[in-house]
Design a protein around this nucleic acid. Structure first.
Lengths: 219, 219
DNA sequence: CTAGACAAAATAATCGATTTTTTAACAACA
DNA sequence: TGTTGTTAAAAAATCGATTATTTTGTCTAG
C-alpha cells in the first residue's frame, strides 16, 4: 500500500502560497516591486480568487506588504530591517537551541546527524542551489526542533524566510561560505556533547557571519 | 483642516479581518467550532470573496486553523498551547521591556503614565469591558513600544491575541484582578526608575498571574 | 512653464454563479 | 452486527464578469 499522499488534496491557493513563498525567499521578485496580479495569474496559471487568497496569506506572514486599494508589493531590502531580523534570529534560535539540547532525545541526535550529512554531501553548484537551500533550511530546523515550543519554532521559521530573502539576494562569499559549512558540523558536535553554552555561542556566531554576507544585498 | 482619515479607504476584507480578530480574541466564537462561511457572510454582511480573504489572513496570523478542502475552524483551547503562549510571552515581553527601559525617552514616559492612568480610571463593568480591554492592550503595548524591534513587537502582539482569547474565555477572579491592576502601576514606577531587573521580574510575575486566571478556560 | 481639473485607462476589489470535494444517509453484503 | 459501497446534500473552492478606486495622460488657466 502506498502512502495516501495528503498533499494531493492541497488547494490551489495553498499551492500558490507555497510556490510564491519559495520564489519570494529565493529572490525571484525584485525588492520593492509592485505585484502585478494579472501577471501572476499567468505566471502561476491560476485564477484570481485562489491567487488573491495566497497573496493575503503571504502578507499576513510578512513576505508581502499589503496596501489597501492599491494591491501588494514586495518589501524593500532595508538595512535596519535586516538588523532586526538577524538580531531576533540570534535571540530566538539561541533560546531554542538551548532548550533543544536539554530536551532532544536519541532520535533527535540521529536526525541531526543525518541532516548534517545530507547537507555536507550536497553540492552548491548553480543548478543544485534549490536543493542545497532545502537541506540547509532542514538542518537548521532539525537543530532546534525539540525545543518544546510550537510558537517559538513558528517565529523562527518566519524569521528564517525573511533572512534568507536578504541572503539569497546578496552575492556569495566563498571564504565565509566555507566557514559557515564547517560550523554546521561543529554545531552537531556541540549539540551531541550537550554543551549548551558553547553551542549557543557558536550558533550566534554562525548567524553573525551569515548576517555579514546578507548585508551585501542592502548596498 | 481635518485629518484626511486614512481608515476611510479600508477595504472590505480588512474591515472583516479587524472585526473577526476582535470577535475571536473576545470569545465570540466557540473554541473548536467549525467556521460556517455562509453564516459569517450574513453575520458581517459581506460577500464571499472579501470574507475568504479575511479568513486566510486570520489563519496565517494564527487565530484560525485552515484545513485544506474543509474550511476553517476556531482553534481549540488547549492547556499545552496556553503554556506555550504564556511562556513565550514571558520571554519576549521580558526581553522587550528590558530594551524599552534602556531606550525609552521622555515622550515614552509621558505616554506610559497616560496609558496607565486611562486604564486605571476605566471601570470594568460588563458594559464597558471592550473599552477596558482596549486600554489594557494599549497599556501593555506602550510599555514595550520603544524596544527597537519591529519583529519583536509583532510577535508580542500575536501572542497577546492568543493569550487574551484564553483569558477572555476564563471566569474572572476579582482578587487576582485587583493584584494585576496594582501591578500595572508598579510597572510604570519601575520603568520610570529604569530598574530593568525589577521591572522584568514584575512583568514576568504579572504574566504568571494572568496565566493562572487564563487557565480557568481550559478545564 | 506649472498647478489643477478632468477623462481615459489600468488596476484592485467584489459579486454571483459554477465546479469540485467532503460529509452524511442509507442500503447491500459478509 | 459491522463493514463497505452508493448517492444525495452540503460546503468549500474556484471561475468569469462587474464594480470601485487609483493612476496616468491630456488639456487649460494662471
Amino acid at each position: 500500500m502506498g502512502v495516501p499522499q495528503r498533499k494531493e488534496s492541497a488547494t490551489t491557493a495553498s499551492r500558490v502560497f507555497d510556490a510564491m513563498r519559495h520564489d519570494l525567499v529565493n529572490g525571484r521578485f525584485a525588492a520593492g516591486e509592485k505585484v502585478a496580479i494579472n501577471g501572476l495569474k499567468e505566471q502561476y496559471q491560476v485564477g484570481l480568487s485562489p491567487l488573491r487568497e495566497a497573496l493575503n496569506r503571504l502578507a499576513a506572514y510578512g513576505l508581502l506588504v499589503q496596501e489597501n486599494q492599491r494591491g501588494f508589493r514586495v518589501p524593500r531590502l532595508d538595512r535596519h530591517e535586516l538588523d532586526d531580523v538577524a538580531g531576533m534570529r540570534r535571540e530566538l534560535e539561541g533560546m531554542a537551541l538551548e532548550r533543544a539540547i536539554l530536551k532532544g532525545d536519541a532520535e533527535w541526535e540521529s536526525e541531526l546527524l543525518a541532516a548534517a550529512h545530507r547537507l555536507k554531501r550536497a553540492d552548491l553548484s548553480p543548478t543544485q542551489v534549490d536543493e542545497w537551500e532545502r537541506l540547509h533550511a532542514r538542518f537548521h530546523s532539525t537543530l532546534v526542533a525539540p525545543c518544546g515550543s510550537v510558537w517559538l519554532l513558528r517565529f523562527i521559521d518566519q524569521l528564517h524566510d525573511q533572512f534568507d530573502r536578504y541572503r539569497r539576494m546578496a552575492p556569495g562569499v566563498p571564504a565565509v561560505r566555507k566557514i559557515l559549512d564547517e560550523q554546521h558540523g561543529q554545531l552537531v558536535e556541540l549539540a551531541l556533547e550537550r554543551d549548551v553554552k558553547a553551542a549557543r555561542a557558536l550558533l550566534e556566531d554562525h548567524i553573525d557571519r551569515s548576517y555579514e554576507v546578507a548585508l551585501g544585498s542592502c548596498k
